Simulated scan of single mutants.
Amino acid sequence: MSKPTRIKNKNGLVSYRIFVRKTIDGNEVRESKTFSKKELAQQWHDKRFQEFEYESIHGRALEDTIGEIITRYQDQYANSYGRSKNYDIARLLRYPIAQIQCSKLSPKHIIAHCVERNKSAKPQTVLNDVIWLRIILRTT
């Protein structure tokens, strides 16, 4: 466990630098960051260390966008479903939700998509969007 190192800046202010080291998949990952308060440095260290632990167990978070994942899903499974589902999935690429990174997707993004879609489609159709997104994300 690292402890913050006290650093005196050129302008006379004190800051704290802390390092995080973790081996993930045989690669050593090192990060450091500087903070104005010692407590903030320690909190960042603890949070990043937990994220590294999670990544070492579950793998790294996907950096792909929803649109990239949808395209990959279509390439792999386009022949195994009907034209209606194919059209619905292709339509998802035209909405802002396709630009969001998978690792940053949250319920608020899905709700915003549903609200936007409800302006031009019935609730049943919006539900289909959510169902197809769920299937695509589970498949990846």
Rank of each mutant, 00 (worst) to 15 (best):
S2N: 11
K3M: 10
P4H: 04
P4T: 03
P4W: 04
R6N: 05
R6K: 15
I7K: 12
K10S: 15
N11G: 09
N11P: 03
G12V: 10
L13V: 11
V14R: 00
R17E: 09
R17Q: 12
R17Y: 04
I18W: 01
F19P: 01
F19W: 13
V20C: 06
R21S: 14
T23W: 07
D25W: 05
N27E: 13
V29C: 10
V29H: 14
R30L: 07
E31T: 04
K33R: 09
F35G: 03
K37I: 06
K38S: 08
K38W: 00
K38H: 05
L40H: 15
A41H: 02
Q42L: 08
Q42P: 02
W44C: 01
H45P: 02
K47H: 08
R48Q: 09
F52M: 11
F52A: 10
E53D: 08
E55W: 11
I57P: 04
G59F: 01
G59M: 02
R60S: 10
E63Y: 02
T65V: 04
I66A: 03
G67Q: 00
G67W: 03
T71Y: 00
R72T: 13
D75F: 08
D75H: 11
Q76G: 08
A78H: 13
A78G: 01
N79P: 04
N79G: 15
Y81F: 15
N86I: 04
D88K: 02
I89K: 00
I89C: 00
A90Q: 12
R94D: 13
R94M: 07
P96N: 04
A98D: 03
A98G: 03
C102S: 12
K104Y: 06
P107W: 04
H109L: 03
I111S: 09
A112H: 02
A112T: 02
C114Q: 15
C114D: 14
V115T: 12
E116A: 15
R117N: 03
N118Q: 12
N118F: 07
N118P: 01
K119A: 14
P123D: 04
Q124T: 14
T125K: 02
V126T: 05
V130T: 11
I131A: 05
I131E: 02
R134N: 15
T139N: 13
T139W: 11
T140Y: 11
T140F: 09
